[in-house]
Design a protein around this nucleic acid. Structure first.
Lengths: 185, 185
DNA sequence: GTGGGAATGAGAACGTGTTCTCATTGCCGG
DNA sequence: CCGGCAATGAGAACACGTTCTCATTCCCAC
């Protein structure tokens, strides 16, 4: 049964991503997710306690996928700053390429309640891990971690500004690059 | 009539802040806002096109009030970094003192749609203006503005982490202080 | 196989943000 | 004072996230 449950979960997340890619947060309607995934509405809620959590878990998958891609094809660049900038620009490009899906997931990140704090924490930790990993091999120093934390915070705020229509997509990459170069010397 | 309209608007925002202080975002129910403000539900929507905008306008007032307090009592500190840290800590203290109200407004910031982009932009600009003002008198340089922008982004992300239950209230202040000291030498 | 308990499907029901309708009120130029 | 028009009040109506109910299905121990 574990197999069919994993398949169900997968279908639900896939349906979520597809609907999100079509029209963002508002297009991810739980009834539609259920229908498209071929499960009952109650089943969606058995697997994901809320719409936000559903989108957060989907987002976590994306971030983990990014981490895998980066381990397969490590960032290029001579200095730590260059490598971090490369990683951040790659991540930004991936996300601006699917604006609506990103908008949906970022909105879930920005409006998370306490019930979803663990999911938000996992996304944020994954992102800081990706950034420290780009700096250099081996264990990151305390300062490395602090820098990565700041960068992941800038990353989130920039994305919020972008999906909220405050900034254009290029602003995200530029803000991140400038922040990275100011913080990593 | 403009006078009574301004009074109505004031009552609506006051009711919003009161409800928000009581139980955060979810406690701000538009019907309750209307009742408490002594207006009809439709009138609330005539003044504020959505719940998010209502909370964003309330937040903008708070940030503007902070700016006024700072101009009356300028930040202490010998260096630019010290003054910025002082400002950020004061702001953080003000907000953590009314956790639920802050949570409501931060959640509105984090989940804003494109329709509210102007309100989000105003809040963000007010915050960067406060930070550049703390650095030194006179016109800020391009780099000053970039630093302030990063700090206001860290500020937003930290608050989101705090209201989302990911971090404790002290983390917000510490993250901001560390970021400020790393960025302002 | 069979019984029992958990998972699922199907769909009703509820709460709250948002919109809509329509009657009433308040103001302003004539 | 009056007619008209925008603003407001009162509340119904609608949409979607969430919860609940109950019948059905699936799996595992025996």
């Amino acid at each position: 049964m574990a197999r069919s449950q994993a398949a169900r979960r997968r279908r639900v997340i896939d349906a979520t991503l597809e609907l999100a890619a079509g029209g963002g947060f508002d297009a991810v309607q739980m009834r539609d997710v259920a229908t498209e995934a071929g499960v009952a509405l109650g089943t969606v809620y058995r697997y994901f306690e809320s719409k936000e959590r559903l989108l957060l878990e989907a987002n976590l998958e994306q971030v983990e996928a990014l981490r895998v891609r980066l381990s397969e094809r490590p960032p290029s660049g001579a200095s730590a700053a260059d490598r971090v900038v490369d990683v951040l620009r790659r991540a930004t490009r991936t996300q601006t390429r699917r604006p609506e899906a990103t908008a949906a997931m970022v909105r879930a990140l920005g409006s998370a309640r306490r019930e979803e704090s663990d999911a938000v924490a996992r996304v944020s930790e994954a992102m800081t891990g990706i950034i420290t990993g780009a700096m250099h091999a081996g264990e990151p120093s305390e300062r490395d971690r602090a820098v990565a934390r700041v960068l992941s915070q800038v990353w989130l705020s920039s994305l919020i500004g972008w999906v909220g229509g405050v900034d254009g997509p290029d602003v995200v990459g530029n803000d991140l690059e400038r922040a990275a170069r100011m913080l990593i010397s």
